[in-house]
Design a binder for these strands. Structure first.
Lengths: 252, 252
DNA sequence: ATATGCATGTCGTAA
DNA sequence: TTACGACGTGCATAT
């Protein structure tokens, strides 16, 4: 890297390839490779990808991404913690291995158009607002958003068959389960809520109310919710101004 | 691109930056940028990311990825179909806009270490085996994998409250719902199965059996399954040899 | 466009 | 490590 942030080789020789890969893996650089390649994956599932041009990204934490020219998702990948090495068989092959579960990714490099190493320095974390956990905070701050007299008692409360978002009581002392969704709630959300309500009825006895709290409902979710005698409270996730969650910006 | 697959500029001037970005967007190249940048996102949620070194990937289909040095997931992104442009304010800013839902991603490029355009050609599709849909095919081919006398009748059958993986009948003529999972089944899977069984009991009347078909169960899933009188059949997803799903390799 | 569910999901958190 | 559920989930599919 000779003191620079970026090292690039166009159509590198095998020797150059080996040197740059080895150095990058050693030094903790991000490796980016443009290459014609074939990909073989075997692990939780198994896949083959024939020859074509792709962008390969290898991060110092072991993350390994192979991107085609379309879609947000990598066509093949390996998660953080995987160990990568460059093998020389007929041609150069990138091999990434994960253990637990055992998964291997092999990339036959048929033609390397470019390889680059990037000494990236980054100390920042994403600060995001509009999440479900912020909805929960908002409800604890202003319980009347649910209904007059609602008292939230537990957050992420483990019960017999799952984990309830918010557990509280209404003005009459009935147990109330809230299931929060940051976006339009689907059947899945109603199933969750029903599971929690049924578990609490068994554990606790007596009447238990279930309220789905979300900006809106799908048609099917509303149908099931009504059939099951569950309730809906419309609520949007809040948008904190400036920094959201993440690292707190220290004032002054 | 002057006839080559790859064009690279190290520490480009603003003019070079503009030229390469414009040309790549026009020509359908994959753009890769190493830069110190700040990121602002607003859409379904809202986020801020302070200054740091990242890898930026922009695909010809509008996919936009910003990667930090860790994790498999991009820290910020825009999905396919988004429209990107390079604006010049105080400095260069990449702006990507998606409509429906309206989402904007802005990347302030504080220091561009490298920019490259890659004229990638790729006509291959991933061929994957070990999926849930292959489990379903296997069960239709060999219903006795479930139990003697089991007859599968419908695949992905829409019912009142959801879509059943496989609907069939047992040797006694009872309706049987199968919920398939390609990996260890969790509480969620049992909730699904229960929802389908209850819906069919209402719709159809009479006894309806529910069988969760998966390689294994979590402790909680087993607990709920037993409480609800549902059944479990251990089954691994099959591994087709050679090509799996995807493009069929024509034999002969 | 809406609804529904899979995914090599990935990721964070708690027991 | 396992279990559980969120995610700006993304993505395919069916209506």
């Amino acid at each position: 890297m000779s003191g620079e942030k970026v090292l690039v080789a166009i159509s590198p020789s095998t020797e150059e390839l080996v040197n740059i890969v080895d150095s990058a893996l050693l030094e903790g650089d991000v490796l980016t490779i443009f290459a014609r390649c074939r990909v073989h994956y075997d692990g939780r599932a198994k896949s083959e990808l024939g020859s074509g041009d792709r962008v390969i990204l290898i991060k110092p934490d072991g993350s390994f991404l192979i991107h085609q020219t379309k879609k947000r998702e990598p066509v093949n990948w390996q998660p953080p913690g995987s160990r990568v090495r460059l093998e020389l068989r007929e041609g150069p092959i990138l091999v990434s291995v994960r253990k637990k579960p055992r998964e291997t990714l092999e990339v036959e490099l048929e033609d390397v158009y470019m390889i680059s190493a990037f000494r990236a320095e980054d100390y920042e974390e994403l600060s995001l607002t509009g999440s479900e956990s912020e909805m929960a905070e908002m409800i604890f701050e202003s319980p009347e958003l649910i209904e007059p007299g609602f008292r939230p008692l537990f957050r992420e409360k483990q019960i017999r068959h799952g984990i309830v978002d918010i557990l509280g009581k209404d003005s009459r002392g009935n147990l109330v389960v809230l299931e929060l969704k940051r976006r339009r709630a689907e059947l899945h959300a109603v199933s969750q809520l029903k599971r929690y309500v049924e578990a609490l009825m068994e554990e606790n006895g007596g009447n238990v109310r279930g309220i789905l709290v979300a900006p809106s409902l799908t048609s099917g979710a509303r149908r099931l919710l009504e059939k099951e005698g569950l309730e809906f409270r419309k609520l949007e996730p809040p948008r904190r101004t400036g920094a959201g969650k993440g690292r707190q910006t220290t004032l002054l």
